[in-house]
Design a protein around this nucleic acid. Structure first.
Length: 436
RNA sequence: GUGGCCGUAGCUCAUCAGGUAGAGCACUGGAUUGUGACUCCGGAGGUGGCGGGUUCGAGACCCGUCGGCCACCCCA
């Protein structure tokens, strides 16, 4: 085996996997489309500055996880670590923000992290962003949309919704100061990671996994008590709408988000069945980001789903509905003349019966070995061309998966070439095209 | 960046007190010079992740390194 391997944390998605991805992509595209969201396709590379300014200088992503490099002209570029920044940039650049915009995108993101279950260096997200609506009914729309998506994907039982409000920047600042003030008096009781975060990113201490730290937080100032009136009423409205829509949720007052641009509503869909990386979808409001990037003040909400994590859930739930189609027909030919006849006949067949999956044997070999391939392809019918068929302008049609009990005589017959399409049409008329 | 576990054929794994590797599946040829599945016979495929050390001798022991998995951190 060659020394050249895929980069750590950047995985190949092989034929056994792609049906799950296709099912996911098709379902997402359909559901989002039905809510009036339009797909955008954005560059994978952006100016490094874009991410520094939007995600936040002191976040782990910007500090140590970005794949950055200098372009040939010396400009610093970065493989996007998340999608929102680029989406905002594109919307601003092309003047899409004069009206309400509902957008979505899907694609690879890059973060230099240690791989583990549900986490890799190149991973894929589906992002959904809404611009221009400040009220909580928009937040509700996004969450309800998620809930529908989980139902369509068949994983609704596996995920749980957690929501919170982190308030306006001003109220969060006030809370932050109070929290730091409180924790500074208990520094020694904090775990090492939380001590480090105390001044860099104190809000993150709230969702520390350390039990002692969590105990300490019980007596700490609570984010809820610092919320501004607007955040409070908007959050109440969101809860009310979710209730009306029948979407269950739990309020997690310690839920915060890692990226700087969030405000007000934040939410996460989490699962128990993915190990330590249980967040399958997360997002929130980011009303200040567009202005911060130099645009008008445009309110926005959005979220991102981790496709690898969703695929893991789909796999747990068994076969996807959009499986790769097994071959219906395998075409076999012995000899040069037969090969010519087979190729042209099969091409004609594809014109006449485009819904059939026809695999044409290539690579020669004995008829026997070709038939072995036919069997392994999973095809229900083999078409056989040999000398006799060529001279008599006919084809042998052989059933490979005869239901037990049927007469052996029906298993194989020779039909005139011009009747082939009609014969196969009848053969597959039951509509049961295939089963993996 | 830190920690734990692991690294033998394409895949799943085995072997032994340290004495130059084996099975199943998959692949392939044949048993039927025009026909698959079941069965039978044969074949190919491994520098035992890589490098060093101990030893008369190492896949098995030691060290290093690379890679994988999981966890911390962080996040989708």
């Amino acid at each position: 085996m060659s020394n050249i391997r895929a980069i750590r944390g950047m995985n190949d998605i092989l034929p056994g996997e792609t049906p799950y991805w296709q099912f996911l992509e098709q379902t997402v595209s359909r559901v989002l489309g039905s809510y009036g969201y339009a797909e955008v396709r954005l560059p994978v590379v952006e100016q490094t500055e874009l991410f520094r300014r939007s995600i936040g200088e002191v976040t782990d992503i910007v500090e140590k996880e970005m794949y950055s490099f200098d372009d040939r002209n010396g400009e610093s570029l970065t493989l996007r670590p998340e999608g929102t920044a680029g989406c905002v940039r594109a919307a601003m650049q092309h003047g899409l923000l004069n009206t309400v915009q509902r957008l979505w995108y899907a694609g690879p993101m890059f973060r230099y992290e240690r791989p583990q279950k549900g986490r890799q260096r190149q991973f894929h997200q589906i992002g959904v962003e809404s611009f221009g609506v400040a009220s909580a009914d928009m937040d509700a729309e996004l969450i309800v949309l998620c809930a529908r998506l989980w139902r369509e994907l068949g994983i609704a039982d596996s995920v749980q919704l957690q929501i919170n409000s982190i308030g306006s920047p001003a109220s969060r600042r006030a809370f932050r100061d109070a929290l730091v003030h409180y924790l500074e008096q208990h520094v020694d009781a904090l775990d090492a990671d939380s001590q480090r975060r105390l001044h860099s990113n104190p809000l993150r201490i709230l969702d520390s996994k350390n039990a002692d730290t969590q105990a300490l937080l019980d007596a700490a100032p609570a984010l809820v008590d610092y919320l501004d009136d607007e955040s409070r009423t908007d959050f109440a409205q969101l809860c009310d709408l979710l209730q009306a829509a029948g979407v269950p949720y739990v309020i997690d007052t310690r839920l915060v988000r890692g990226l700087d641009y969030y405000n007000k509503t934040v939410f996460e869909w989490v699962t128990q069945s993915l190990g330590a990386q249980g967040t399958v979808c997360a997002g929130g409001r980011y009303d200040g980001l567009v202005a911060q990037m130099g645009g008008r003040a445009v309110p926005a909400v959005g979220f991102a789903m981790g496709m690898e994590r969703l695929v893991l859930l789909l796999r747990e739930r068994g076969k996807p509905r959009a499986a790769a189609p097994a071959a219906h027909i395998y075409a076999v030919a012995a000899g040069r003349a037969a090969q010519r006849a087979a190729l042209t006949a099969v091409e004609t067949l594809r014109d006449e019966l485009p819904q059939l999956v026809i695999v044409q044997h290539t690579g020669g070999g004995s008829l026997r070995s070709q038939m072995k391939k036919a069997d392994k392809s999973g095809a229900r019918v083999a078409l056989i061309w040999g000398e006799e068929e060529v001279t008599s302008a006919s084809v042998t049609v052989k059933r490979l998966r005869e239901a037990s009990g049927e007469t052996a005589g029906a298993a194989q017959r020779r039909v005139p070439a011009r009747e082939l399409a009609a014969t196969l049409c009848a053969e597959f008329a039951d509509g049961q095209s295939d089963e993996g």
